[in-house]
Amino acid sequence: MKIIVTTKRVTDPDIKVTVNSDGTGIDLQDMTYKMNPFDEIAVEEAVRIKENSGGEVILLSIGPAGFQTEIRAGLAMGADRAIQVEHDDYVEPSVAARIFKKVIERESPDIVLMGKQAVDDDAGQTGQTLAFLLGWPQACFASEISINKNSAVVRREVDKGIETLEVSLPAVITADLRLNEPRYPSLPMIMKSKKKKIDTLSFSELAADIEPRVRYLSMENPMEREGSCVLFEAVDDLINALQTKAGAIR
């Protein structure tokens, strides 16, 4: 199987972000970056498929020239090579999907694996959009993937439980949290990955339509809850407050 995994460089999800003073975005001073955690799960799954049945795993990322730490992290996990489409600014999901389509048409993989959403813009649109543009079936929010010769059976996390779909290949599959536990690359893996190749491409080389379809205008801090927490020592007092003050129970 030839598998492409998209990896996005995102602000470290373990750092609490704050909106900058002019309300144009978030405060990026001293910010550190990571591979989108859902993409890490996708990389892990692709590497496991390769380990079981052979093939090639290629990482595909859009990001600023020279910033490749996150891509190297994926190569250290076991991907074979990477393609970075160089671009400095935020790209919305529909633009990312149009760019990915161009690269994927060049590479003709059997499967595109992606995270179900990126933890920066939390949009959750790119995989589905890409599947439509490619004319491929999609299986989103995967918690288990079995690969057959010409199809994949995917168990997916939906509101009511677990749904199973069979998609013909090629297909786009997006990873949910419980698909696997991504590995920590060993030192030899990290050393070995330094020799792996990262090809770079530009937007213009790909001749993709990059016309945006949405416009971000400003950013603000979320509304904080008013007041402070009233603490009780006795269960009776808590129940009483819920009944009388909050009117939350009878």
């Binding site: 972000v17 933890v119 939390d122 379809r213 416009r215 971000y216 400003s218 950013m219 603000e220 801090n221």
Partner: peptide, 13 residues
Amino acid sequence: MYAGNAVAAMEIT
């Protein structure tokens, strides 16, 4: 966005 730590205003064009 950002796990609820920022609220963005946006429009669809």
